[in-house]
Design a protein around this nucleic acid. Structure first.
Lengths: 355, 355
DNA sequence: TTGTAAGCGTTATCAA
DNA sequence: TTGATAACGCTTACAA
C-alpha cells in the first residue's frame, strides 16, 4: 500500500503543534519557529534537535495559524472563467513560473467552485486575504474587486482602468494568418467569426494585412514569387458565442455567398472545427480544396487526427507576464496600469497547403 | 468599470475586523460572531445593527482566523493528477453536488500547483487541516496520507486498503462496447490498447462478452436477427501510456496481422483518435470501412468534427459518489472501506455503423 | 543564539 | 439574549 505512509503516532489523534515540537526538542516555540523559517542564526545542535522532533511527531505547521500570525499571506488568487477552457492550463504554468519562484502560493477557483459558501470566488479570495488577484479571461461584469487589491486581467480585455492587462495581440495574430495564407498563394480568403471582441480584432488584423498587400504596400508572397491575383477577403460573422456550431453556420453562409474561397481563417479553433465539419459535409477536402487555419492552438488542434494549423496565443507567456505584473503591482500599488500584448505565433500543421 | 465595486473606505487600508464591526454596531464581538453564524438567539434589532455595520465596513471574516478558532475546517482537498485530463471537470461537478451542499469547501490542486512551498499537494492539504482527501485518478506511489485521514480514490484503482474507491466499471464498459458492435453486425472485431490497468479491464470485458456470444450462451445480435458468423476478437496491445501515438502503432500492428477487421474498440478516446489517423493514412474510411469506438466520452469525442462513438465513464456520478463516501467516512472513521463501481453507458455517434 | 510575551481575528465557554 | 474571557497555533518584537 504505497500511498499510506503511516507514521502518525496515534491514528486519529490531533495533529502535533509547535508546542509539542518545542517540548520534545527541549527548546522554546520561538526557536522552532526560527528553524521553520530557515533562520541562519540557530545553532546546528538545536536545529538538528528540532528537525528530529518534527520528524518524530510528523509535524506540519497549520496554514491557518501561519496566515493569522504572519504579516503577509504570500497567496494570490486566480479566477478561471471555466475549467473546460483548456487554455488555463498553460496560463497556470506561466503563473507558476513567475509566482511560485517568488514564494507565492497559488489558489485557483472557477466561477462555481465554492458557491454557496462564498458569494463569488473573489469574495473567497478576499476572505483569505490574498495579496493579489488574477482574472483569467473576460472578467465577469458583477464581481467586485476592491480598488486596493492588486489585480491583473490575463487573456482578456481590461474592463477595469486600474487593472493591469496581459493579453494576446489578436490583431497581429490576424496578420500572421494572412501572411501564412498569402504565402501559400491563396488570394480568395474567407473569415468565419462570431460576436466576441477577440473575433473582431482577429478579423481586423487579417483584413488590414490583406488590404495592405492588395494595395501593393507590402509584399504578400512570403518573400518569393508573386500572387496570381489581387487578394481579397470575405467575412462571415454570425452573432453569438464562438462555438463549433457557430463555425458550421458561418462557413455555410460564407460558401453560399462565395463558393470560390480557397482558404478560411476561423476566429478560434473550435469554430475551425465547425468549419471543417461543414466543409466535409459539402464534400470539400481539407486542405486539398480548402485550407483552414484556426486560433489559440488548443490541444485538439495539436492532435494528430485533427492536425489543425493554428495561431498560438502563447498562454504560458501570458501567464508569466501576468505574474510579473502582479508582483510589480504588489510592490508598488501606485504604479500606473499597463497593458501588455504578447506576440502570437504560427503553428503550421496539415490543414493548410499551397494553392 | 463594472468589476470594480469600490466600497472600500480607505483604499489600501487594512480589512475590517470583527472588532471594528462590534464597535460600529455598538455590541460585543461575540454577538457579531453569533450573527455571522446565523444563530437564532439574537434579537432582530441587534442583528440588523450588526448587518448594517458589516455592510458599511465591507467586512469579511478572515478564513485563517475562522479556521484557527473553529473546531472543524469543513474543507476537503482534491488531488488531480493533471489539469490536462479533462475528465476532472465532470468529477468536480459531482463532488460539488455532494460536498458543497453539505457546507464543505473544496480545494483543488494538481501535482505541481504549489511545489516548492509544500512538498506535495497532500502535504499542503494536511497543513490546511482538511477533513478529508479525494485523489482523482491513479494515486501516486509516493504520496503519504496518514491513516487517520479520510480518503477516497475516485476514478482509479485503490492501492490503499483502507481507502474507499469509486470508479468506473471498466469490465462492463468493455461488454457494452461488444454489444454495440455485435448489434451492428460486426463479427471480426479488433481491440487496441496499452499497458494501463483500465485498458486490461476493458479488453477483458470485451473479450468475455464476445466469447459468451460465440459460445451461444448469449444472444449477441441486440435482440434481432443473428450474426453472419461466429464473432471473434483480436487484440493489439502495445506497452506504454495510452496516447494517440500508441493508438497509431497499435492499429498498425492490428491491421498488419488482421486486415479483415471491420470494427475497432480502443481502450480510450485518444487512442481511438490515433487509430482513426492510422486508418485514414491507410485509405480506410470511418465508419464505412471500419467502425471505431472509444472510451471515456471526452470533449473531443463529442465535437461535431470528430463525432466519436464512445463509452461514457460517467465522471459526474463518480464524483458524486466519491463525495458521499467521503462524508460517510468523516462521519464514521471506523467504517470498512468500500469499493463502488459506476455503470458506464454507450454514447453512439458517427464512427460506428452497421456492417 | 535563545527565551518571553504580546498579538493575529476568530470561535467557544461561561456567566450575567 | 448578551458580554467577558480563554483558547486556537503561530510570528515577531524585545529581552536576556
Amino acid at each position: 500500500m504505497p500511498i499510506m505512509g503511516d507514521r502518525t503516532p496515534g491514528a486519529g489523534a490531533k495533529p502535533a503543534t509547535i508546542y509539542d515540537v518545542a517540548a520534545r526538542a527541549g527548546v522554546s516555540k520561538s526557536l522552532v519557529s526560527l528553524v521553520l523559517q530557515r533562520s541562519p542564526r540557530v545553532s546546528e545542535q538545536r536545529r538538528a534537535a528540532v528537525l528530529a522532533a518534527i520528524q518524530d511527531l510528523d509535524y506540519r505547521p497549520s496554514t491557518a495559524a501561519v496566515a493569522l500570525a504572519g504579516t503577509r499571506s504570500r497567496t494570490v488568487g486566480v479566477v478561471l472563467d471555466d475549467f473546460r477552457n483548456q487554455w488555463f492550463v498553460d496560463l497556470l504554468t506561466g503563473l507558476r513560473e513567475s509566482l511560485q519562484g517568488q514564494g507565492h502560493r497559488l489558489v485557483v477557483a472557477d466561477r462555481f467552485l465554492n458557491t454557496g459558501l462564498d458569494a463569488s470566488p473573489v469574495e473567497g479570495f478576499l476572505s483569505m486575504r490574498v495579496e493579489g488577484i488574477v482574472i483569467a479571461g473576460e472578467p465577469d461584469a458583477d464581481v467586485a474587486v476592491p480598488a486596493s487589491m492588486p489585480l491583473v486581467v490575463a487573456g482578456g480585455r481590461a474592463t477595469v482602468p486600474r487593472a493591469d492587462t496581459v493579453a494576446n495581440d489578436d490583431r497581429t495574430g490576424g496578420a500572421i494568418a494572412a501572411d501564412h495564407l498569402l504565402g501559400l498563394g491563396h488570394t480568395r480568403i474567407g473569415f468565419v467569426g462570431a460576436g466576441s471582441a477577440a473575433s473582431v480584432e482577429r478579423r481586423t488584423g487579417l483584413e488590414a494585412r490583406i488590404a495592405a498587400v492588395a494595395a501593393g504596400r507590402v509584399d504578400g508572397s512570403a518573400g518569393s514569387g508573386s500572387l496570381a491575383a489581387v487578394p481579397t477577403v470575405v467575412a462571415s460573422v454570425v452573432p453569438g458565442d464562438p462555438t463549433e456550431d457557430t463555425g458550421v453556420r458561418a462557413l455555410g453562409a460564407l460558401l453560399d455567398a462565395h463558393p470560390d474561397v480557397t482558404a478560411v481563417f476561423a476566429a478560434n479553433d473550435v469554430m475551425a472545427l465547425g468549419a471543417m465539419s461543414a466543409l466535409a459535409e459539402r464534400g470539400l477536402r481539407v486542405p486539398e480544396d480548402v485550407s483552414v487555419i484556426g486560433y489559440d492552438d488548443t490541444p485538439v488542434a495539436a492532435t494528430r487526427y485533427v492536425g489543425l494549423t493554428s495561431i498560438d496565443d502563447r498562454s504560458v507567456e501570458i501567464g508569466r507576464g501576468a505574474g510579473e505584473r502582479l508582483l510589480a503591482r504588489i510592490a508598488d500599488p501606485g504604479a500606473p496600469a499597463r497593458e501588455i500584448l504578447v506576440e502570437p505565433r504560427l503553428v503550421a500543421r496539415r490543414t493548410t497547403a499551397p494553392r
